[in-house]
Design a protein around this nucleic acid. Structure first.
Length: 588
DNA sequence: CCCACTTTAAACACTA
DNA sequence: GTAGTGTTTAAAGTGG
């Protein structure tokens, strides 16, 4: 495996630029292509090693911290948590680069992994493994002092049952070795195949993996024939090869950058960790709670599947409850009982924005209520209004959990939309969409039960009834004024306005973009319906609300309803930049 | 224990 | 008829 430096891209390029090649050169070229593959594998190994190093370092650090951890807590806590956050995000980033790299390789046919041979499903490598592993790492770092770090070998079984990765891939404290396991499997497999002459890096699952080819073959020999005929050394092939080289180069470049950054961070943290005072607490801030809780609720040793959700916690150490994510909830079985922001206006935005990538990649149930999430989704939209389908898409886009556990949450979303007073349905010719009445959200009220059942037909009656006063108000273009009111409301709740680019967190756009890129590679079939967006809406819909108000005296206490107006700011031109491009719902 | 709230499931209605 | 959407009710769980 540890092949010495095989060939540099420059050399390759030279060769390729010669254009006219002898059979010998062709042979050399093919060999070099294989060498390139080996390089890829080396890269992978490097990734693993880096992970391992990280792991060790984190453990060391944590041990040191434990020894000092009796001291002052509160002051340093946040500082440390910020470091941890950054570190965690860097970890994530490296993982994502790795993931992207692997995906790319796989897509380009340079990495041929056949589940049957490796014993691991491909997606466990390209999708599930990364977040799971990261979480595992975090769990170890954060919980090591509670859990016994030693003699865990056979006792722990890894992860979340819903995780795509099989248990054996996720042994506690064995993530590195399990990867090594994979590698050795792969190596074994490939050497074995090489012996049997039935494998080729460009041949997998009966398909030619030459970039852009994907021809199907029954047997290996017809593939070889095809390879020699269709992908012989000609302009096209060399061009493709060059492209591939650039892809690899770019990935390597990116990796190098991230590596460097990570190294700097690690160095920095390491230095700090040797200073007695800077590490009053273990890396995490909440894991104790999480662990103790889940230790009761879940089967003891293992099922802390995605517990590393705790990285969310360091950012917003508000209360303990929100950090408690039990195994059950992570499995999608248990109810979502982390009242993070359901009432009392706990702003979910900070957590959401800071942990966005985490939620996007890890199948962790977000510690927010549906109502909070829906509200967030709507408020994040340029026009502060979303169709149901767009709400769905926001969920799937922002949370890996909802991409996977699609079973019931859509119903819950609908129920919440209907049930909460704060969500107001608005309708125009093109369809209906939902807006948020933040005043009602603050009050956290539900529509009273037992009120007369509403029939759709009723909506057409009583257009002038007092119930619809709000509608009339909101249908007048109160744009700027209401926008100000809305922002004030947001400020009051300490909720950043993404759409206006607030806190230093990455914008939704860029994140969505990154996510989309990743998804494009990672999704097997996901996009069943390209039409994510609901029937096109005019930028200025003639709004008339549908939701009736039971005419509660309290409902007229203030200008609350004004806030509910969709913010028809002049920027509706750049709306839906990402909304419409993706329809990843229904991916179970 | 009570109450408010959340989640989930289910039934039902309406529309495309 | 089906799927999507929306409303409502009920049960169960959580937490103040």
């Amino acid at each position: 495996m540890m092949t010495p430096q095989v060939i540099t891209p420059q050399q390759m390029q030279q060769i390729l630029q010669q254009q006219v090649l002898s059979p010998q050169q062709l042979q050399v070229l093919l060999q070099q292509q294989q060498a390139l593959m080996l390089q890829q594998q080396q890269l992978q190994e490097f990734y693993k090693k880096q992970q391992e190093q990280l792991h060790l370092q984190l453990l060391q650090q944590q041990q040191q911290q434990q020894q000092q951890h009796a001291g002052s807590k509160q002051n340093k806590e946040q500082q440390v948590s910020a470091q941890q956050l950054a570190f965690q995000q860097q970890l994530l980033q490296v993982q994502q680069v790795q993931q992207q790299h692997l995906l790319n390789l796989q897509r380009q046919g340079l990495l041929t992994i056949q589940p049957g041979q490796t014993g691991l499903p491909l997606h466990s490598l390209t999708q599930g493994m990364i977040p799971a592993e990261l979480q595992q790492l975090w769990k170890e770092v954060t919980n090591a002092h509670v859990k016994e770090e030693h003699n865990h070998n056979n006792g722990h079984r890894g992860l979340d049952l819903s995780s795509p990765a099989p248990p054996k891939n996720t042994h506690l404290n064995h993530h590195a070795s399990s990867n090594g396991q994979y590698m050795s499997h792969k190596r074994e497999a490939s050497t074995h195949e090489d012996h049997s002459h039935h494998s080729h890096p460009l041949y997998g699952h009966g398909v030619c993996k030459w970039p852009g080819c994907e021809a199907v073959f029954d047997d290996f020999y017809s593939f070889l024939k095809h390879l020699n005929n269709e992908h012989a050394l000609d302009d096209r092939s060399t061009a493709q090869c060059r492209v591939q080289m650039q892809v690899v180069q770019q990935l390597e470049l990116q990796l190098a950058k991230d590596k460097e950054r990570l190294q700097a961070m690690m160095t920095h943290l390491h230095v700090k960790s040797t200073e007695p005072k800077n590490t009053p607490q273990p890396l995490n801030l909440v894991s104790n709670v999480t662990l103790s809780k889940s230790a009761h609720s879940a089967s003891p040793p293992l099922s802390l599947p995605q517990t590393p959700t705790t990285p969310t916690a360091p950012l917003t150490p508000l209360s303990q409850t929100h950090s408690v994510i039990t195994a059950n909830s992570l499995h999608g079985v248990g109810p979502m009982r982390r009242r993070y922001s359901d009432k009392y206006n706990m702003p979910i935005s900070p957590d959401l924005s800071q942990n966005k990538e985490f939620y996007m990649n890890a199948e962790v149930r977000p510690p927010f209520t549906y109502a909070s999430l829906i509200r967030q989704a709507i408020l994040e939209s340029p026009e502060k209004q979303l169709t149901l389908n767009e709400v769905y898409n926001w969920f799937t886009r922002m949370f890996a959990y909802f991409r996977r556990n699609a079973a019931t949450w859509k119903g819950a979303v609908r129920t919440n939309l209907s049930l909460h007073k704060c969500f107001v349905r608005v309708e125009d010719e093109c369809g209906s969409f939902w807006t948020v009445d933040d005043g009602e959200f603050k009050r956290g009220r539900h529509i009273q039960r037992g009120r007369p059942r509403k029939h759709a037909a009723d909506e057409n009656f009583d257009v002038q009834s007092p119930n619809l006063v709000k509608n009339i108000q909101t249908s007048l273009g109160y744009g700027p004024t209401l926008s100000a009111a809305f922002q004030a409301s947001m400020a009051e709740n300490n909720i950043p306005l993404y759409t206006t680019g607030s806190i230093g967190s990455p914008t939704l756009h860029s994140l969505a973009h990154a996510f989309r890129e990743e998804m494009n590679g990672a999704m097997d079939h996901g996009n069943s319906n390209g039409s994510d967006s609901s029937p096109g809406r005019s930028p200025l819909p003639a709004m008339h609300h549908i939701k009736e108000e039971p005419l509660d005296p309290e409902d007229h206490e203030g200008p609350l309803s004004l806030v509910t107006t969709a913010n028809h700011s002049p920027d509706f031109d750049h709306h839906r930049d990402y909304d419409d491009e993706q329809g990843h719902d229904d991916m179970l």
